[in-house]
Design a protein around this nucleic acid. Structure first.
Lengths: 123, 123
DNA sequence: TCAACAGTTCCGAATTTCTGAACTACGGAA
DNA sequence: TTCCGTAGTTCAGAAATTCGGAACTGTTGA
């Protein structure tokens, strides 16, 4: 297995982020990952409720998320641990991830403190 | 020529917005359109500096932008007038368009007053 | 009626996406 | 050590999408 590629923060491109998150399945995966308490393994995320994502497709979704800079993946024993790079990303693209998740109606609790411009003026 | 389709505000899907703006050429077009004073015709937007977009590709870019709900197109005589739907969009997806354009380093002056959560807390 | 222009549609080539099947990597049991 | 089971990756070919030149449509002005 070839080593996993993760772009450096400064190499993350907005078009890659938007492309990765223009697929509702990937958004669902990313949003679940951003939810504290989720193990972050592939198999834990395959079930979308209405359909189970084939594992080759799932693996590809993780690759797209990883190489766009949205998540970090690390092998831990037999499984893969995935976590979002939200904090870093918010530094580089302030408010971007947050407003995307809000648009999808997927803002998880953990992210509610991500951007400072949060609930300052009543909304 | 078949009539131009524009989605109603409530039918606009975030995945379509992100997909449309995951292409840097379309972002460049959209950002130019958002700039006050730009005529908004296709031919006025074909020149990207480093390359001229073929007109069939350009027409397709406009179609993607239009059908995702990002712009409104209206025939005016022989040419087509295009304008962004930023104000409406910001109502439906607060802060989204703004943070995307900021991420691309493309925030035009007109939009600086778009979102209320702007420069409230120093940045 | 015709020519010129702005933009759209068509269609074939190139690229990308999808997913089942085969494969690799690791851990545990014997 | 060898074998097995589990987690995930890679491969490969079918399907879908994108790209862009050529032909076409709609509009204005002569």
């Amino acid at each position: 297995m070839r080593p996993l590629f993760h772009p450096a923060l400064e190499d993350i491109r907005p078009e890659a982020i938007l492309y990765a998150l223009s697929d509702p399945e990937r958004v669902a995966i990313f949003a679940k990952l951003a939810t504290a308490g989720c193990g972050g393994t592939c198999s834990a995320l395959a079930d979308l409720g209405d359909r189970v994502i084939p594992k080759s497709s799932l693996s590809n979704h993780f690759k797209v998320l990883r190489e766009s800079g949205l998540i970090r993946s690390e092998r831990q024993g037999v499984e893969m641990r995935n976590q979002t790079r939200c904090a870093e990303l918010d530094e580089r693209f302030p408010g971007l991830i947050r407003s995307i998740l809000v648009a999808y109606g997927q803002l998880p609790g953990q992210l509610e403190t991500m951007s400072r411009e949060k609930s300052r003026d009543g909304q």
